[in-house]
Design a protein around this nucleic acid. Structure first.
Lengths: 203, 203, 203, 203
DNA sequence: AATGAATGAGTGTTCATTCAT
DNA sequence: GATGAATGAACACTCATTCAT
């Protein structure tokens, strides 16, 4: 079936993708079933398959759409800006992403953990290009003495790791923190500024 | 039938658990099949089920065993030692874990990402207790001015996030780094010392 | 709703039946899908079902229409004519049918092979009557010494078998003949005259 | 699962193939369902799939096995023998095949009718080779004046067509003959000798 | 007259688990 | 201890048909 563009088509497709996000992010690709997705979406299974050709298609649509959103903030780093502010802006953007879109973050994490079988092409392509651009900016800043010398690639990895952790490992955080911290992401934001720009050694 | 403890019993159980680790860490609980595990283990499926009552049992055995290993290094932090050295020792221990046991790390990550349905009890118990102990040490160091003030819980989260990232997101790292860095974990170790103890602001 | 008979109605019905012939003759009744037929016909599936009540109806319409065409030449055998010429005329008519309407021939063959579940009534009726008429003519000719004595029923079967073979087993023929015979049906016509009226024994 | 060769394996595989022959020959590949086959075989569907990897495998196993049987008699034509007797021996062998294995004949016919999608390789290979051999013998006989001149390929086609007709179009024969001929194949054998070796022209 | 949307009943296949030996 | 055989419950996907407009 050719993809139509009527209002109802767009709406239903959104509903399905949202349901799919829910289910896939909880169980990964193989762990999710179309029955679950259809139930969450409030559709019959065949009706759902009227809008998407199959499980794989739903998943890939979800992933590629997600990758765009996921990469957006990285483009926003401005070489002309202040390094400290620019990096904190990126960290905060990532934390907000973890707050608002934890399911998307988990879906992405699961895909990578499983070896990114349905994403590898895009990782080598779009992602690599964007990372290289940011790395260039970081390197420039370091060369100009506006940023401490440190491996720029691993800096990006560290930002990703720490910020996504608030979405991906939320269950563990909650288990550890209990009731102590009702808003770990906000606390985390402050902590990360301390960590990234002051370090742990006392002054 | 009670689980026996003959040598052959123990050996076979080890072989099965190792195979299960392989398979579960690649596909998660639902994505793995007993057939795969049995094949990797070199046993027939019914024979495997002679040693473990079912899929769930294999998985849980694996997880709880893993949790022990996973928590060990945390116990090693010595309040009497030098904070910088102690924390770096822990970071390096975790990085080594990522290097030597990436499958274990991924298995653990997948379980948490899926909401830790088969681990929640242990997270609230053993893990929380051990974290609280370390947090106490960090807090003490901070109070004594030997460590910069920063949220000790989030410090632990940051250590976990950054170090485990080298195992869990290895595919993504390789896609981004290409051939540039043949040994990201070693580079990462140096980077993390820079990051954690010097920060990004230039001096 | 009664079937109307406007020009457009008739035209659309023809288009559908032609598409159905195409698809049914390639895959049999169960192997064909309404989607395929609708696509070949260039109609939407519900629109197609506006003209025919269902899959079964399309198939039966096709079959009964086919049976008429299929039986026509048999009526043409003229008792007053020359036996040799009359029979060869029938054989040639059947061969032409195989040349021009191989899909119809195959559809018919598949239906019979499957036990003629949707045709049995018509076989006992119209077909039997017509065959009996021809058999009567053959018998007469034999009684008059104008045709060699041979079972007249099996004579008809042999004509059917040999002539339809050129449509129904065309794939096999092509596999066997390769490029040797670009026009097997013409060669077949000559061969069949040799076979039927001279036999294989040398004179 | 590797194909085992225990007694029970062989027996069950035979039972399944027999059931499959029954069902496939009635409905063709797409028309047949594994449920039907399993029921005829008296097995559960998954159990059946323990012995054969899938529908396609069952079908292909059946076909290739059938092709062997089907080609056997063709090898038996003896160049040193009497042409009339040798050909009649082949015709009778084929008629016996139609009598004893009508389901096999129909399965084969349906496959060819559908364009031989799962047999084309074998048609070009084994079949063609064997036909060419027989054609050589026929041609020799004709050159020696021991057989009337006639296209040898089409002679084979005519033999196949007329003899297989007794299996493939049995339903139609019964409809036409009614109760008149309780044993059409025997009658057919006599008729075919008349037809092939005497022709229809009166002497 | 036409079509987008919807669905119940299949249909081939997988899989954890059990049975029998 | 070990394995071949068996199965119920799923699961992804198909399809003829119906509904609503």
């Amino acid at each position: 079936m050719a993809v139509k563009n009527t209002r109802i088509q767009r709406e239903k497709r959104e509903i399905i993708l949202d349901a799919a996000l829910q289910v896939f992010s909880e169980n990964g690709f193989r762990g999710a079933t179309l029955d679950q997705i259809a139930e969450v979406a409030g559709l019959s299974k065949p009706n759902m398959l009227y809008y998407f050709a199959g499980k794989e298609v739903i998943y890939r649509t979800l992933l590629s759409r997600l990758l765009e959103t996921w990469l957006k903030p990285l483009e926003g780093i401005d070489q002309a800006g202040d390094p400290h502010k620019e990096i904190m802006r990126y960290i905060c953007a990532k934390l907000e992403f973890s707050r608002k879109f934890p399911r998307e973050s988990r879906l992405f994490a699961i895909e990578i953990l499983n070896g990114a079988p349905r994403l590898s092409g895009e990782l080598d392509g779009a992602l690599k290009k964007l990372v290289d651009r940011s790395v260039g900016i970081f390197q420039k800043w370091m060369d100009e003495g506006r940023l401490a010398q440190a491996d720029p690639y691993h800096l990006i990895f560290a930002i990703w790791a720490t910020t996504q952790h608030y979405a991906d490992f939320a269950v563990q955080m909650r288990a550890v923190l209990g009731e102590k911290d009702p808003d770990p992401i906000t606390t985390g934001g402050k902590f990360l500024e301390d960590l990234f720009f002051r370090g742990l050694d006392p002054r």
